[in-house]
Design a protein around this nucleic acid. Structure first.
Lengths: 158, 158
DNA sequence: ACAGTATTATTGATTTTGTCATTAATTGCA
DNA sequence: TGCAATTAATGACAAAATCAATAATACTGT
């Protein structure tokens, strides 16, 4: 698990920003977006840590709440993780009693990943926590800006 | 180097998007931003591959064009990479004749990373290529939306 | 119905990254 | 001067990405 120091939410410094712009990197979407992604992921990871799961595990859990339940295959596509990685993530969630692997009624190859009641609750808790944390992280932005960001990023990411 | 298949620029599918929204993950900034970051990074990586460098190497090269030249220390802060990682990246760029390590005139501990003429040109080429690629990647967005995205993400990432 | 092909979950090997501790050289401070 | 801090570099180790292979099952075209 990439558990960055939770006490240091990684604030970049003024001077860095100036030189970043001067170098041209500050206009580079690959740089900006991946950096924004890393920063928010770090924050999110720290936020769900008290729940006893990593942010990746949270995402598996969260997506497993969809109906009908996803196969591990779908999880790997949606989360853009190698199928072999999903195995381990689901393993840990299963051991923690948060999800179950149920055989698909229609295809005996696939195992559906289904949240337990505890898993359901934890997923909702996580959603609340993350919403709070991001509200805080984006406190400097206007609500319309956040909405715009959400809409645009969704167009890129989805 | 995380060199994703350059022929498959990773297009998410309609149906995934629907279920992603249904699961609630589609409203999750940690998910959206990190995913957008990964997607654009993959695209960018494929785009600069013909130049013979990875996107990380490109970023080091690009930032080294700032004046005065950065120390390796500054590179590690700005790019959020471990100092030990910078060593290898600069090594490769140096071997490729794209940057030089010059002793700082004011502090004999620091080595300034300075682009060669070839490095300068390649950095500019890269900037052009990446601009094109992202224009293409964001083709569905209005220019104002792209501007807004850039501004907002810069506030988050910088 | 059959043969061949594709797909699913899983395992394992290999490589790449991230993270940490340590070191030698050098600087800056008390 | 002497001591703590900083820089680049190296090496150790854990985490993650990537890739190949496998067994079970499903699907296809004939």
């Amino acid at each position: 698990m990439p558990s960055p120091n939770p006490t240091r939410p990684a604030a970049p410094h003024r001077k860095d920003a100036r030189r970043l712009l001067a170098s041209g990197l500050g206009e580079n979407f690959a740089f900006l977006l991946s950096r924004a992604g890393v920063l928010t992921t770090e924050t999110a990871n720290a936020a769900v840590e008290p729940l006893g799961i990593s942010i990746q595990e949270y995402m598996v859990l969260s997506f497993s709440t969809v109906s009908p339940p996803p196969s591990q295959r779908e999880l790997s596509q949606v989360l853009r993780l190698d199928p072999s990685r999903i195995v381990g993530l689901v393993d840990r969630l299963e051991q923690a009693g948060l999800v179950q692997r149920l055989p698909s009624p229609t295809d005996r190859r696939v195992k559906q990943v289904v949240p337990t009641d505890t898993g359901q609750r934890l997923s909702q808790q996580g959603a609340v926590i993350l919403a709070e944390v991001h509200a805080q992280q984006f406190a400097g932005l206007q609500p319309e800006e956040i909405a715009a960001l959400s809409a645009i990023v969704r167009r890129i990411a989805l």
